[in-house]
Design a protein around this nucleic acid. Sequence first.
DNA 1: ACAATGGTCC
DNA 2: ACTCGGACCATTGTA
Length: 468
Amino acid sequence: MSFLDIRHYKYLTSSIDRNLDFSAFMDFEHHYQVSENKEQYSIEQAYFAWQESLMESAVDTRIRSVIDMESKLLPVLAEMERTGVYIDEGQLRAIGEDIARESKNKELEIYDLVGERFNINSAKQVQTILFEKLSIPVSKKIKTGYSVDNEALSFIGQKYEIANIILQYRTLEKLRSTYIDGLLKVINPHTKRIHTTYNQLGAATGRLSSEAPNLQNIPSGEGYPARIKSCFRPSSSEYSFLVADYSQVELRILASLSGDVSLIETFERWEDIHARTARFLFGEHTTITSELRRIAKSVNFGVIYGITGFGLSKVINTSPAEATRYIDAFYAMYPGVRSYYQSILDGAQKNGYVETFYGRRRHIPGVRDSNKMIRAAAEREAINMPIQGTAADIIKLAMIEMSDFLKAGSYHSRMLLQVHDELVFEVHESEKDIMEAKVRSIMEGVFPGAVKLLVDIHTGTNWSEAKG
DNA sequence: ACAATGGTCC
DNA sequence: ACTCGGACCATTGTA
């Protein structure tokens, strides 16, 4: 029982069910405080008493199983945090210098184009320059004035090159400030590694979150993002990286939870789900271009998020009416999804909460609100949570199993990171085959749904190389 | 210290 | 006129 374990436990209850009795927790805190500097034994005694009491107060067996899951996950996360991940500091600095150089050039280019120096990092000053000094037409408004975000500047960029340069400058500055300077700051001087903290109850759906630093939003594209990601690597040449990620896990979960025959069939036939939706939306005999597939993919994802025609129209850049037709077409193709959603909303209305396959709950008070907007937002949360939350449960269970496996066999390989549907391992040369087989069988085997889960595995000398 | 804005990820 | 689900963090500018 380490301090890390205790710190985590202090927060465990509320994420599972707010209606749980907290008195046992208070007892634990008290015991912890009074015994902290005395003997380890009394801490552990208080800890077990608390856990037992927590279990007793959670009479619902499904809730108990979630508490059990989180309890077992906690030491796994603690170990991943303690292990940390190595990052090549010298390489990261070198990339930072390249970015800084390019960024400086963009900066000067902007001043030249505008004929004036200003702080490009200030949205307010960018507004003034674009909309007042240069009299560029406003494309999008926000509470306090005129938006200069990505969407707005991309639109303006069709006619005014200055907007594109500002976007490029921003991208570079984002990489430099957050992912070069930000990561350099948190390299532990003793271990030379980065030790994130996983929050077990940061997310309302049951996902983990990662902070100080957040290693769940490391950029992933080509160019600088790939170079930054390649700095994450094993510290020794005897090891390589293994990345295992669930393929379309949320859509597969939706198929299993809804029981929709057509959706299940799509996956059973190993069809390209986005292409199939595209064929249905645009006609069986239409050639499915990458553009049509992209639209269908957005529709598929939109359905998971509790889509509206308006929201989808923004994403795929079309009219709300057309987007609404796509959504209706999706439900026509997969009618079981619509009825499943209705049952979720009915349950939310009746119980005030929704739950995952494993019984994790999220309270959704907004579904009973008199305000239509609040109700609509609550309904999207209600629809999304069982899907996103079940995916979170699944990977948590897989992590527990992987940890047990590694421990039982005294392997040298270690689990390093979790990025929602992806696990990153540092794998010893001698364990490559067994690790690849085990990771796949455990991750794919956790969930007993109608649709089999599929895991893609990639290996490489660093995080970038081991990415699909 | 905190709100607003913007950007990165799944 | 209008919001797609879930997070964390950097910077600016105001209090």
